[in-house]
Simulated assay, not measured.
Amino acid sequence: MKQTFTDISVNGEAISPELIATEAQNHPAPKGKPGMAWMAAARALAVRTLILQEARRRGLAASPIELAPGLWETEEDAIIRQLLDEAVEVETPTPEAVRAAYDANPERHRAPSLYEAAHILFAARPDDVVARKVAKDQATTVLGKVKAEPKAFDALAKDHSACSSRANGGRLGQISAGDTVAEFEAALATLNQGELAPEPVESRYGFHIIRLDAKAKGEILPFEAVETALRSALEKAAWVRASRAFVDALAEQAEVTGITLKAA
């Protein structure tokens, strides 16, 4: 049965289903639930309409800025930015507030851990189901050989790995956060020095047999090293809260039909 949606308008200004359908492509949703993307898109467009209406009420004229060489804001984006700059007031966090945020959770300011690791990669494209199955089976078989004879890792890497590191027995050298894909990093974080991942680790590249050779946990950075970045983060968080409060206030005074803006 085809899903239908109520017509949506903000203060009498209609938002077309075609525009919502186009915007929905920018809002991921669980498989089989396209309605969630549609509703998220409708809310986003309703909020945008509400802000543009307020900008027009205030008589703002667009003054686009150059975002990058040859890349300029659209007039609507410029007006939205100008309105928020004018209407949203954010207090700069005090030195005491910045220090308190650091002291509340110093662990958040730990330097990245460093790893020395080796791997054997069985490559397969993410969209090739058959190749993924073959790669996993091959990785499982070779992992069994490594577990039975750990000293054979280098030779097996040279014989089987699809990574250029095979020439060095699969050794990747020293790596840290961001140097590998998330699945690989997550596996490293669970291993002790000298330990093998118990099962092949899947990533976008295929399946990896992973060995952790050394690990140095990052130290907690001193307050002085993170003060500027932490202050900036607090300012951004405060701006987000203030801008949401501004939009909520507009929504309370608006006549919105077909959707609620509570989740916007």
Score class of each variant (00 low, 15 high):
residue 70 G to R: 03
residue 254 A to D: 00
residue 153 F to K: 06
residue 35 G to E: 15
residue 86 E to D: 14
residue 171 R to T: 10
residue 59 G to C: 02
residue 66 E to V: 08
residue 35 G to S: 05
residue 153 F to E: 06
residue 244 R to C: 02
residue 70 G to A: 04
residue 80 I to F: 00
residue 47 V to D: 01
residue 80 I to Y: 01
residue 44 A to L: 03
residue 155 A to R: 13
residue 72 W to N: 09
residue 35 G to Q: 12
residue 78 A to K: 01
residue 86 E to K: 05
residue 177 A to G: 06
residue 157 A to M: 07
residue 158 K to L: 11
residue 25 Q to K: 13
residue 77 D to P: 00
residue 7 D to Q: 13
residue 214 A to S: 12
residue 81 R to S: 00
residue 58 R to A: 03
residue 27 H to I: 06
residue 49 T to M: 12
residue 219 E to N: 13
residue 32 G to L: 04
residue 54 E to R: 11
residue 228 T to H: 11
residue 167 A to Y: 12
residue 264 A to D: 03
residue 119 H to Q: 13
residue 249 A to S: 14
residue 257 T to K: 10
residue 205 Y to F: 14
residue 234 L to C: 02
residue 6 T to G: 01
residue 34 P to F: 09
residue 55 A to P: 00
residue 191 L to M: 14
residue 141 T to Y: 13
residue 80 I to R: 08
residue 224 E to N: 10
residue 13 E to W: 08
residue 153 F to Y: 06
residue 61 A to L: 11
residue 114 L to Y: 08
residue 125 R to H: 11
residue 19 L to C: 09
residue 73 E to R: 00
residue 221 L to M: 13
residue 178 G to R: 05
residue 68 A to P: 01
residue 89 E to C: 05
residue 129 V to M: 13
residue 24 A to L: 04
residue 226 V to P: 03
residue 161 S to P: 02
residue 251 A to G: 13
residue 55 A to C: 01
residue 152 A to Y: 01
residue 26 N to Y: 09
residue 141 T to F: 11
residue 173 G to I: 10
residue 137 D to H: 09
residue 86 E to S: 12
residue 57 R to G: 02
residue 43 R to V: 00
residue 261 L to Y: 06
residue 75 E to P: 00
residue 121 L to S: 03
residue 252 E to G: 12
residue 68 A to Y: 11
residue 162 A to I: 00
residue 18 E to Y: 10
residue 207 F to H: 13
